[in-house]
Amino acid sequence: MSLNRDRADTAFTFKGGMLPMTVMELASADPERIRAQLAGKVSQAPAFFQHTPVVLSVEQIDEPHLALERICAVCRAHKLLPVAVRGGSDPVKQSAWALGLGWFPPQESRPRAVETRPVESGLVEASIEADLPVPPTEVAVQAGGRIHRGTVRSGQQISASEGDLVVIGAVNPGAEVLAAGSVHVYGPLRGRALAGIHGDREAGIFCHDLNAELLSVAGTYKRLEDIDPKMLGCSVQVGLKEDQLRISALT
């Protein structure tokens, strides 16, 4: 296949994308209980139920077989479109595929879900306001990113392997902060900061009080020696421009 193949020849291209998805976290597999709760929800927030795609999460349910077809039917009857199932046993996975649904492996850690899940109700209570047209959504594919509060000290390394890293505090000499995306430091940056560690050339570094030992975006770096002394101590943004690391004041 030629590298210079004409674009018009291709019928499609595959692209990675992250879309916000509503996850319907089932605490009960009983279609009748789900129906009862859905009926109540529809009257509260009719705007939400407009063929909204949902991912059925069955991670909390510890049964090998589920009445997946009936659950889907109940959802569709209330104008929710199940598009995929997350978690569950192997038979659940097989029946999801048989129903033309996708299957996602169970999510490993979900610290946020604990706060929003009322224990007694059958469905996760997505606190839907009747006058709020946009439903609160959970991003199905985690965008990554990380917020670190406090001083990053010498010898410590804080990294975000996906997304941006936000440090609320100082990055001290001998410390290292890294991110696949951009690095934001709300405090003095005295250590090493590396953005775009997987090669994202659009990433940047943003900080108050620049005194970094090393700045790097997508592998292109500057040492403290190479940094224009005029920029030291200033609030700056750092990005790649024509293969050069460009440091400019944040105004």
Binding site: T151, R153, N172, G174
Partner: peptide, 13 residues
């Protein structure tokens, strides 16, 4: 100061 900073990191982890 740098070594103290390192120790402070250990104290907190």
């Amino acid at each position: 100061v740098r070594d103290s900073d390192r120790i402070l990191g250990l104290l907190s982890s």
